[in-house]
Design a protein around this nucleic acid. Structure first.
Lengths: 216, 216
DNA sequence: TAGATTGTTAATCGATTAACAATC
DNA sequence: TAGATTGTTAATCGATTAACAATC
């Protein structure tokens, strides 16, 4: 977390999975877990798991393993899940609504303050208790409310425009579902969810089964 | 494509991006492209791009580069995008509807034949011209229509149950949006879209900017 | 204490980058 | 032909796995 050397992206992308399994274990009342058991659950090797965790500190105890609750909380902190994030969603179509409706994100600390759209037919609607507002109001809304994360669920030809508004509003991170790479200043964190790329990979593996290895 | 050695997963996951940029170039009327230009667009190195493509054959021409249309079509074939796939969606909530509504997938050859749900309030609805049916009918529907791809957009506690029905129906690939790892026989291809893992990575980078490198 | 399992170093493996001869 | 750019080999870099001493 506060190491001198960077932690590699491949490590970081495994953390949420550890966190997910640890949460499940905690809910089941399991108090203790070894790297070998975690390996059986996640599909990563025990050695890799120990290496990954030791990027952030020695959370385990020789001869015992890891305390489930403690490790989960530590990972939560590392992932920044001990905070509340204010988010807005640009695009109130099905995908935007799906995200606004999804309880799991709110439970993890990601609050949707508002959706925005330019279609008058959806402006004014409420998804759960979140209002859909005119996208014209978005930049000011972000500024006034200190929104940190912007979520892009508009069609690809509008994605850059939305990203520009986010940046002007002072957003720090963008979760982008549009199948386009957006250009933003270096200090803005962009996480892309390119669903077409995922689907095309599935299609590749269907046709080239020999290249497929179950990864989890 | 039909090499002796496997093509590595990291290579395969880059292909859809090449395909996407090549499609854009084609639509713009660009006929020719060098690995260096593709590098500028995608963020991968020119060397890596040439290495990646040469896993599947020599598509380029020394001193010239690559023919955009030809390379795009070759990649399309490699990815299996020259075929039509029959799919069904289990879960007719916002996310399932978003996918059923998304024209991009249909254009790429992924036809949604039906959605399934167990909520009587949505059974009978039509998303575009695709009907929502009772999930009880799903297994037979898959068999009768030769459905190859099953898409899971149900809550996580129903994901395994849906996967089991898919397998019994004879589905070959599963696109899983539920935040759970499903267990299926080895010969079934599973592509997971774990949105929480993506969001948590964004959250990590927001809090640990020094570890962030723009990847595309 | 004996057994178990971590933390960590060293060895291996694989992926990326660099370099350049081949050739269009 | 001269210039450009690929295809491919070799070098480097980074990630994973193996091994084991430390220690609970």
């Amino acid at each position: 977390m506060e190491r001198g050397n960077r932690v590699s992206i491949t490590v970081i992308r495994r953390l949420p999975k550890y966190y997910r399994y640890l949460t499940e274990l905690l809910n089941k009342g399991v108090t203790r877990i070894s790297s070998q058991e975690l390996s059986n659950m996640t599909g990563f090797t025990a050695s890799q798991i120990r290496q990954d965790l030791n990027n952030f500190g020695g959370f385990g105890q020789q001869g015992y393993g890891y305390n489930v609750e403690d490790l989960r909380n530590q990972l939560g902190k590392i992932l920044g899940l001990d905070k509340i994030y204010k988010t807005v969603i640009a695009g109130a179509g099905n995908l935007g609504q799906a995200i606004a409706n999804y309880k799991g994100f709110e439970d993890a600390g990601f609050q949707v303050l508002s959706l925005f759209d330019r279609n008058p037919r959806v402006i004014g609607l409420r998804i759960r208790d979140v209002e859909v507002r005119d996208v014209e109001l978005m930049e000011d809304f972000i500024k006034e409310n200190g929104v940190e994360i912007g979520i892009i669920t508009v069609p690809k030809y509008s994605a850059q425009e939305v990203a520009d508004i986010f940046v002007r509003g002072g957003i720090k991170g963008i979760w982008n579902f549009a199948p386009a790479d957006i250009k933003v200043p270096d200090e803005i964190i962009v996480e892309n969810v390119h669903l077409n790329e995922s689907l095309f990979a599935l299609s590749y593996f269907l046709n080239n089964r020999q290249d497929y290895v179950r990864r989890d």
